[in-house]
Design a protein around this nucleic acid. Structure first.
Lengths: 234, 234
DNA sequence: AAGTGGTCTAGACCACGAC
DNA sequence: TCGTGGTCTAGACCACTTC
């Protein structure tokens, strides 16, 4: 029995309950004590226990049901969470020099596949921008972006030679929702040339589609130079 | 002015504040009203506002400081969160048949590179297991796993022909912490053969290192068949 | 020194869902 | 039906930071 010099906080409760789960005091599927009981045991308010348990639930450690109580998850479905990397920040965080180059820019009618992806009407005008991001002078990421001009008309006149589309959009259209897809692909001709790798070399690809409250804003393909790794902890 | 039939909840506050940020009522960097003021405005308790703001902070929309107040983030650093994919669940979720095959298993001394990765002493014994996961009869994922026997002695006698190492570990050693790395690589000989792709084909690779309270448990490389995508929303 | 967010409390009511 | 978690409240004290 340990002396309780300080008040019990929700972090203490969370940590202790987690420890007891790890130590097999409560095995997978086991029913945990109710919030009222835990509050009595820890000598704190039920609200405090509630917050602790809520976080354990968010973390995928336990499952909670009204009337059913809280149970240790059978197959803990942990979640990874990591920040969406902004290229510039990502490069500068490594201590490397960031540099950006605009390769091409044109206003066109959206090709069919893009119409489908963004769910925009036929003949929607989009701005297509290709650019390259360097780390310490070496190609780091090739960016192939399409911006929906009916959602962001001001993008038509933006100077993407001065400011990358990425940063322009962040400053102009923040607080969007997005879908991200990660995959591996082979470096096709122009991409291989730009990233200075062999044709067919394995490339880490990020695709992102972005909406501003229902309105499709942009679709972008980010091709990373060889050796790129995305890292997360949980 | 809308009629307020129901009590204001933290979700309402969160959503409304977010809407006001998106509508540029509060631009990037702007100082938001204090919790007390917002509580008065919404006609609810400060605790309710606090929870809403806390979540907006977690979501990367705003930044909060004691005494400094809450501000809209200049560069919203949104976070992606997605579930750690369990192969079986992932395959069955697609409505495909899951099937598993053990390719090889051996107990050996950890090679040097693994010693370094897991930070284990020289001559640590590990179990090396190679296996293949099928979706509807087609190779889906090749698994190359190393298990630290000094951390999980029981793994030495486990029957990985019946149960995949993944599922065995989840049932035996749940609630671990982990580091995950995603990258693209080329299919080398044995991997190409097993995944039935051409040698050199781009492969999506997941590497995961797992600890149980400081003790390194396992390191695994997961090679996915061509066309695999990892998807997340935020 | 003072103001703002961070957290705890004790009590209350409600909604879901197992029984 | 009724127990359990979900949420709100009103009030309080504390801790961090800016002033």
């Amino acid at each position: 029995m340990k002396a309780r010099l300080l008040k019990i906080g929700f972090r203490d409760v969370k940590q202790d309950v987690f420890k007891r789960i790890r130590s097999s005091e409560w095995g997978p599927g086991a029913l945990l004590p109710g919030e009222v009981d835990l509050a009595a045991e820890y000598g704190c308010a039920r609200t405090t226990v509630n917050r602790a348990m809520q976080e354990l639930s968010d973390d995928g450690i336990i499952e909670r049901r009204r009337k059913g109580g809280s149970r240790v998850r059978l197959a803990p479905s942990r979640q990874v969470t990591f920040e969406i990397p902004r290229v510039r920040a990502e490069i500068e965080a490594k201590g490397a020099d960031y540099c950006y180059e605009l390769l091409s820019s044109a206003v066109v009618k959206a090709p069919r596949w893009l119409e489908v992806r963004l769910a925009v009407p036929n003949a929607t005008r989009v701005r297509h921008v290709e650019s390259l991001h360097y780390a310490d002078g070496a190609p780091f990421q090739f960016e192939d972006r399409w911006i929906n001009l009916s959602a962001v008309p001001r993008a038509e006149g933006a100077d993407f030679a001065a400011l990358s589309p990425n940063e322009w959009l962040v400053s102009e259209v923040p607080y969007t929702t997005a879908e991200v897809r990660f995959s591996a692909t082979g470096a096709s001709g122009s991409i291989a040339t730009n990233l200075k790798t062999m044709s067919g070399a394995p490339i880490f690809l990020t695709e992102r589609t972005t909406w501003l409250a229902e309105a499709p804003v942009t679709y972008v393909r980010l091709y990373f130079a060889s050796g790129y790794q995305m890292i997360a902890r949980y």
